[in-house]
């Protein structure tokens, strides 16, 4: 199995628009990498999840995500946005956006990698590392290492 994130799934200059546009921009990278097979179908699944409860978290994080039939393998697209994108968190817009794509179905094994990713998200050191990442390759490597730790 490949890594859940590669440099081409990182956008360190995500435009500060709304969450739909930001999510679409990241999702297009997943499509280009062949990890998402149907852009609109996948975005509809993400929007449905977002409608249940906004995925913005305190501390400037947005984690739009979905389990979708249009996802071929567990994947993460990461965007950094200086201006911030509103993901519905009470304390303001998100500067770090993690689009998490999980294949549908109940394969517990490959879900564990996403569980490890989620566990890293709450650590300040993880956010700091991503805020300081110089380029997409560094960000992807950093995330991969953190999840493996």
């Amino acid at each position: 199995m490949s890594q859940i994130i590669t440099p081409d799934l990182v956008d360190l200059d995500l435009p500060g628009t709304d969450r739909v546009a930001a999510t679409r921009a990241l999702a297009e990278r997943l499509v280009a990498a062949g990890r998402v097979t149907d852009l609109d179908g996948f975005l509809a699944d993400v929007a449905a999840r977002e409608a249940q409860m906004p995925t913005g978290l305190e501390g400037g994080i947005g984690i739009p995500h979905a389990r979708s039939a249009h996802v071929s393998e567990p994947s993460l697209a990461f965007g950094r946005c200086a201006a911030g994108v509103d993901f519905g968190a009470e304390d303001g817009p998100a500067h770090l956006v993690f689009l998490i794509a999980a294949p549908d179905g109940e394969g517990a094994e490959h879900m564990k990698i996403l569980a490890s990713l989620a566990r890293r998200l709450i650590h300040a050191s993880f956010k700091d590392g991503l805020n300081q990442a110089a380029d997409p390759a560094a960000a992807a490597t950093f995330i991969t290492q953190e999840i493996a730790a």
């Binding site: 995925t55 995500h65 979905a66 389990r67 996403l114 490890s116 989620a118």
Partner: peptide, 10 residues
């Protein structure tokens, strides 16, 4: 959580 891939573990 509803999706069971992010918030649960966070």
């Amino acid at each position: 959580c509803p999706t069971g891939i992010a918030h649960t573990y966070m």
